[in-house]
Amino acid sequence: MARIKENMIHGLFFLNGLVVVGVLCGIFAILVFTAAPAFKEISIVEFLATVRWNPTSYYKPSYGILSMIVSSLMVTIGALTIAVPLGIGTAAYLTDVASPRVREVAKPVIEILAGIPSVVLGFLGIVLVGPIIARVFGLPNGLNAINGSVLLAVMALPTIISLSEDALNSVPRSFTEASYAVGATKWQTVVRVKIPAAISGIFASCMLGMGRAVGETMTVLMATGCAPAMPRNFLDPVRTMTASIAIELGEVPYYTTHYYALFGIGLVLFVITFLINMAADAVLNKYQVKVR
């Protein structure tokens, strides 16, 4: 009897796993099949390696998405540059240094931050972050890559903070005590013992934060200026892959090369996210700290 129950539970979870994998493969298949017709007319090299994106040109439509790829990566890297140190630092502070009172206040604040709709953040990007950036850098307006990076950092922060906090909290207390016992301060302990011991969890939190940033659409659409050109630096307006899809998919005539090409962008996005995750996994396996 117990055996049968055991087997049923096992089967159920196996089925669950199968469904997840199935959904993932399904999404991939749909993207591939819908994007494929685009490549009857566009060469993959043109698609991935040229900069001009002008699918509605009457004479010679062009379908280069390199500037979008670069824009997406730029905004993401910018966001991580801000969010990773800030997020890990905040997590370290909250787990090991802050008083319980501070912790009690900070927890709900971070949760609220996670719940802000992206359109609201985009709005803040236009009316708050933009003007500040324009002021600081002396620009006509502040809708550019750095604006997007700041907003995406804000979006990624709650994920990074709370998951890093979990990782830090699961470091055995015996490590902390061993560190204190030789006269380490709280900061030294968290930086030199706890963070290294929790590095795989912290790394995973950053990857999840990055996942949010790469895929985020509305905020970057609103706050980055949306110019489909190759950005030269962080003060240039950019248009990410996600923003392009969101802007154009609503208006494109169905079953045209343009329509298929937008799915091609989606496919590229999917592959990039997939690769990032694979790379993260590989790094994790390599640097996994051996813990008993």
Binding site: S174, E177, A178, A181, V182, V193, P196, A197
Partner: peptide, 16 residues
């Protein structure tokens, strides 16, 4: 704690 060192009941080396 620097002056009063400690060896714990369960050995607890760092993962280093």
């Amino acid at each position: 704690r620097r002056k009063v060192g400690m060896v714990f009941q369960k050995s607890n080396p760092f993962p280093k």
